[in-house]
Design a protein around this nucleic acid. Structure first.
Lengths: 192, 192
DNA sequence: ATAGTCATGTAATGAGTTACATGATTGC
DNA sequence: GCAATCATGTAACTCATTACATGACTAT
């Protein structure tokens, strides 16, 4: 239940309305955590009920400004220091790679090439972003820079890996769709 | 809705029962896509209703063996060639990094250190796995090796990044919990 | 006989998405 | 006056998790 903690985190920086938070999710947290408007307002209600946040002001158009409470801050720090659950093992990208033998080698290479191109575009965007905020007036905090660096290194890795993989996929016999023998699914066993 | 495609992918390799698929998810796909038993049986029903798979045999204990149909194969290949939706922008790990200023620098470094250690453990496991399947009797397909290589490179990157980040976190004034000024949330704007 | 594994299902709950619905205020 | 933006909420649906429930077969 990380939406809750994302919201507590944002409110720990100062009071805000649901509308404000929504915008923050769209810009600051866009690459880290996404949330929809419906979700946000529902969760605001729940957090307020639980006493982790409270309404501190009401403005025009029914605007309600929320602030984090002491209990909320405590919960935020508790979450930050609890042992991380291992990262979610679910990647549509890899799932496709796993079943790429259903396509022709040429189509499979095209898939990897597409991944590489996307990664390169993302890398470019992040590089520009780094320059913009790097020495801008609203300098990133250390932690923002660390997160940005992750994006940068990650997209570089993705494009390198995809380019490498492309060269690994060569013409293969016996894998024309429908003719491969059963039992040939690639194994990627977890050792527990 | 990738569970559907994961199941079609597995069945494209040969007929199997729900029970068989469950085991395959636990071993072969453990690092790529997870599924629970409830989910699996429910989805089998839906896929059969949709005509993408069909029951080809019944065994003891009510065992039902399913096989992919032509329609299912077509759907699988369609999914493999459709443009990839951009990867899910939701990472609990990064979310925590973003709000690490709520902790003391020492605690924040401990968090990064924990990430690095986990990554190093994973890297070791994958290395061993690579050796085992690398020249074993049930050799990995090219695609399985490509996926494994991603895991290997990814965990190496994670540990390097986390170790680097640890050195970036130094003692800071004004960030004792509760005393930082509003408006200092790190920005990581997406450029759209 | 009885423990282990094979084998399938249902119910409750939580989390997330899309679409719908409504209305106030501000700037031109 | 009107368009844009501010602002909050509800409803229906899908996806995933956990727990519960049941029973057949196999090997010792």
């Amino acid at each position: 239940m990380s939406l809750k903690h994302a919201m507590l985190g944002l409110l720990s920086d100062g009071p805000a309305s649901g509308y404000d938070l929504l915008k923050t999710f769209d810009v600051s947290l866009a690459n880290v955590w996404t949330a929809t408007q419906s979700q946000l307002y529902a969760e605001l209600g729940r957090l307020a009920d639980a006493g982790l946040i409270e309404v501190t002001a009401e403005g025009p158009r029914g605007r309600k400004e929320y602030a984090i409470t002491e209990a909320g801050l405590t919960e935020l720090r508790r979450w930050l220091t609890e042992p991380s659950p291992s990262h979610p093992r679910r990647s549509e990208m890899l799932l496709r790679v796993f079943f790429l033998n259903q396509l022709s080698p040429e189509q499979a290479r095209a898939y990897m090439r597409g991944l590489a191109e996307n990664a390169e575009r993302e890398q470019e965007q992040l590089s520009r972003l780094k320059e913009v905020v790097g020495q801008g007036k609203d300098a990133l905090s250390v932690y923002g820079m660390i997160a940005l660096e992750w994006g940068l290194r990650g997209s570089a890795l993705l494009s390198e890996w995809a380019r490498w993989a492309e060269t690994e996929i060569v013409e293969h016999a016996g894998s024309t769709p429908g003719t491969q023998p059963p039992g040939s699914t690639p194994a990627c066993t977890r050792e527990t």
